[in-house]
Design a protein around this nucleic acid. Sequence first.
RNA 1: GGUGGGUUGGCCGAGAGGCGAGGCAACGGACUGCAAAUCCGUGUACACGGGUUCAAAUCCCGUACCCACCUCCA
Length: 468
Amino acid sequence: MTIRLYDTATREVRDFVPLQEGKAGLYVCGLTVQSEPHVGHVRSAVNFDVLQRWLRFRGYEVTFIRNVTDIDDKILLKAAEQGRPWYNLAYAMRIELDRAYAALNVAPPTYEPAATGHIPEMIVLIEELIARGHAYAAADASGDVYFDVRSWPQYGELTHQGIDDMEPAADADPRGKRDPRDFALWKGWKQESEPETAAWPSPWGPGRPGWHIECSAMAGKYLGPAFDIHGGGVDLRFPHHENEQAQSRAAGRPFASYWMHNAWITTAGEKMSKSLGNTLSIPAVLQRYRGAELRFYMVAAHYRSHVEFSFEALDEAAAGYKRIETFLGRVGPMAGATWDLPDAFAAEMDDDLGTPAAVAVLYDTVREGNRRLAAGEDAFEQAAHVHGMLEVLGLHPADRAWAAGAGANDAEERLRAAVDALVAGLLEERAEARAAKDWSRADTIRDRIKAAGIEVTDTPDGPAWTVS
RNA sequence: GGUGGGUUGGCCGAGAGGCGAGGCAACGGACUGCAAAUCCGUGUACACGGGUUCAAAUCCCGUACCCACCUCCA
């Protein structure tokens, strides 16, 4: 069965045909590291992590590049406000971002290049564009270099827009532009307002790269002039992706075969954007929910569907995830068992990563497994399927990533062992009371344990406790 | 002005011409000393108005409302 993916450029679901058989080259726009990551940012990472995992499961050798934009206007501005070097802010936020990825079990990409590490590659690309007549150095003394939109007739092909239909950017400084839609490939150093550390030498004088050029340069370096899939959030379609494609193709590089865009998570109907300030940071959410629960919430919605974030919906997802965990717990360890996937699940995943329907298969399997257990039959086949499905979605409860994200450590382990020993003593007393059918005494003991914040439940294998 | 997306039962969230995805909640039942967990059952939902069709949530026309992008944004 072939994988089918929705391609923004053609606006249809197409069979995925890689450039090289058995291999998949994937480039995803990562973040500008300028503030704490919020749930919206992480959705993109989770969505493309699922894509990566699915491609691998289907046997592709995946090269996955996700960049980090570590120099731009916002970083310079915020760092100046905070009175610290821009590179210090960018680096600190990058560490935060890595933590968020780890907490959500987002697998590291093959490589994660940073813009500031690829200035020479960008300069080469800009020189190529100038040589081909698609870019020009501004006539003024700014040191800026612009892409010449009018020189590239296909401009607008990705987002199906005509140049003349576009609203000219009202607030953009026309400076030395020939056309208001021309965009900066290189920004000359503004000596009076920008730190010298944010300027790199170039044939056009000191300066820094424009926003779009980094992705073209880095995708070219690590994936080659033509590669399979380019991804990012919907807002990036224009201008970012349109410009990336224009400058790459104008330089003679075919660029991406497929374009994939994930939809937003919004709060109160508004997009969760740094500039709106209504962020919901990952560390804050992880105070209340486990990383696996948050990831499950995201995976249960389709990547192209807009999601209105709510804690109620997240609660539901968490309840559902616990139900799956409970089933696995009932079946118990399955040493040596082979995990595999139900065909229906694989078919849904092949169809443009149909995770909602795939999750429905997961629930169906859990219900069938529970039904068999209730009937006194074994549920090993169902459990093997559930293990397999969770694994490929990056949601396996036993994944070590969760423990790392939750910050479990030796002290917690020892505490848990101590509590277990104390509770075990009380549970023994309760067992005696129950054996004597002294229900009031048994319930009194249970209530005392509950008052300490620990929930006791009776299972076929005896009583179990969890922190409530 | 241009380009795209959306409106589904109490809630979340799929589907894209014909048998009620799935989950959460609720109610009834089974099991359990009681709980919990689990299972079984219970819902005639698709913004509105027309149309096409034997058959429309799904296709067509129109209307309303919402959102995104065209400016930094996952």
